[in-house]
Design a binder for these strands. Sequence first.
DNA 1: AATGGCCCCAACCGCCGTTTC
DNA 2: AGAAACGGCGGTTGGGGCCAT
Length: 245
Amino acid sequence: MDCKKEGALRRGPWLEEEDARLVKFVTLMGEHRWDSLARVSGLKRNGKSCRLRWINYLNPSLKRGPMSKEEEIIIFQLHALWGNKWSKIARRLPGRTDNEIKNYWRTHLRKKVEAQNNDKIIDWRGNKGEEMLRKYKESEITWTRTTTREHGFEETVKEDKQINMESDKETNGLICEREHFGVMNSPYENRIFDWIFKTSIDQSDANILEDHSSSSSDNSINSNDGSWWFQETIDFEEFPCSLWS
DNA sequence: AATGGCCCCAACCGCCGTTTC
DNA sequence: AGAAACGGCGGTTGGGGCCAT
């Protein structure tokens, strides 16, 4: 691609000088037009690489250090709801990037989920593992109870999770159940389900779970259950999670 | 001390949607 | 309206560090 034309483009780990130069030019030019920024700055990197370096490493708003228990819980639960929607999950966690969350999930949480499921991935297609679901539900409720009020969603979380857990088997259909087992969707499946979701629901605050049901005609989850989890806010800064303040 | 295996994470890749011209 | 450029996303990889043997 660009590399062919600009054979001197660097790859691999960033040097300190490159970081310093990138920070300088992002400060000057802002966080957009990455290709031109890369060109103007004289960095031998493509725009994408610059953007990624900034977003995942240099951005001063990034939080450093290990994930807190609370963050872990949030990731765990949001992943159970949304699957591998890392950027979406990242928007709920200030100072954390999608890449970081993705890595964290792969190296930490996934193991926990699998361990919880008796060290085996459940074949959701075979629709087995009733007892696994029950176990997961139990542990899920425990998790929600540890969520602190500090985040401002303790009560709703607890209620919603219970409501959803009770109803997911019959209302949520395969995708939710699979995700609760920690089983990934393929990108194609995700897109198809996203599409179905978008076309079947015209309000952004619709409940995410009900659309996955093939028989969701009238057994949808109560719309006034206050399930903020399922409401993808347009602007995440509006999200009343105090982690962002 | 050497080394092989595993873990972690930064960086890259390919695809797709959006914006710009 | 359509092509090109840009930006964002999720998946994957490579290499450094750690640890057990």
